[in-house]
């Protein structure tokens, strides 16, 4: 059993709750103990750092300090949370003045000495062999377009570990459980992210391109590791169709949902009925 301090993020309680369900179920199967950080707060996401530099650092810093108090490395499943936590940690670590400032802002000593991992990294750390051993329903014949988005891979000076232009961690994981993944050019093309409400036209045009690319590569589904990407690709897919007269019906699954299916977990337990674009046909092919 490996223990982690777990930072669910705000959407885990709402629009991204199927990601939370799948993460918990898969973590249990993999022997990862996710200990929720008590009283965690919002990381501020894009609005935080867009509004003020210190605000954008201090909101995640409080969570880093809480994880440090637990003496555990931290796992953040949402790519946006993960990005803010790593950014804050790196920036504060490089600047002693900022460290003192954080103490003043937080009203408590700041320590941010624990590793911050994305859910992809935490799962990958389990190792390919163990994953294979747990696979009871290999995803054979399923073609997946792995979509990393932005905040899991950029900026490369801060977010390290995977190739920022051609990342492979997700592909390796899903290939490891039998899926075929496509070498497409849209792995890290932005979905428009937080502009969904302020500038929906940006999101719809981006999502259309990503869906079109996935269709071109004959993908059965898109796999993502970010609830914001998921919301744009899944929830707004019908709007893309209305706007552009297209007829996309591309299931968008969280990578832990696909892993969970391969491990023989129940689709309901993985929240597979909670998407806007139906996943039933795909699930039938696996289960």
């Amino acid at each position: 059993m490996v223990r982690y301090a777990y930072y669910p993020g705000c959407v885990a309680e709402g629009s991204g709750r199927e990601y939370e369900m799948a993460n918990r179920a898969v973590a249990a199967r993999l022997g990862l103990e996710l200990v929720e950080i008590e009283d965690w707060n919002c990381c501020g996401a894009t609005p935080g750092h867009n509004t003020g530099h210190l605000l954008g650092l201090a909101l995640p810093a409080r969570n880093l300090a809480l994880a440090s108090g637990m003496g555990l490395d931290l796992v953040a499943p949402c790519a946006a949370c993960y990005n803010r936590l790593v950014t804050a940690q790196r920036e504060i670590a490089c600047d002693p003045e900022l460290q003192v400032l954080m103490g003043r802002l937080l009203g408590r000593d700041y320590h941010g000495d624990r590793r911050v991992l994305s859910m992809v990294e935490a799962v990958a750390a389990v190792g390919a062999e163990r994953m294979k051993a747990l696979t009871v329903r290999p995803l054979e014949g399923i073609t997946v377009a792995c979509y990393y988005g932005c905040l899991l891979v950029r900026p490369p000076a801060v977010i390290r570990g995977d190739d920022p232009e051609d990342p492979r961690l997700l592909d390796d994981l899903l290939r490891g459980v039998g899926a075929t993944t496509v070498d497409w050019a849209h792995k890290t093309e932005c979905c428009g992210a937080a502009q969904a409400l302020p500038h929906e036209e940006v999101v719809l045009s981006r999502v259309r391109r990503i869906l079109e690319a996935a269709v071109t590569f004959r993908a059965d589904c898109i796999a993502t590791a970010c609830p914001l990407c998921h919301a744009n690709l899944d929830q707004r897919q019908a709007r893309v169709n209305r706007r552009f007269g297209t007829d996309y019906r591309m299931p968008v699954l969280y990578f832990t949902q696909l892993l969970g299916l391969a491990f023989g977990l129940n689709p309901g337990e993985l929240g597979l009925g909670l998407h806007f674009v139906p996943t039933a046909e795909l699930v039938r092919r696996i289960a």
Partner: peptide, 25 residues
């Protein structure tokens, strides 16, 4: 998938302090 009641953390005052102090600084 939409939580009806607002969340509430115990450390909400700490979060408000962060907003206040960050703006002031």
């Amino acid at each position: 998938k939409l939580r009806l009641r607002p969340p509430r953390i115990k450390g909400v005052e700490e979060v408000r302090r962060i907003f206040r102090e960050a703006a002031r600084l």
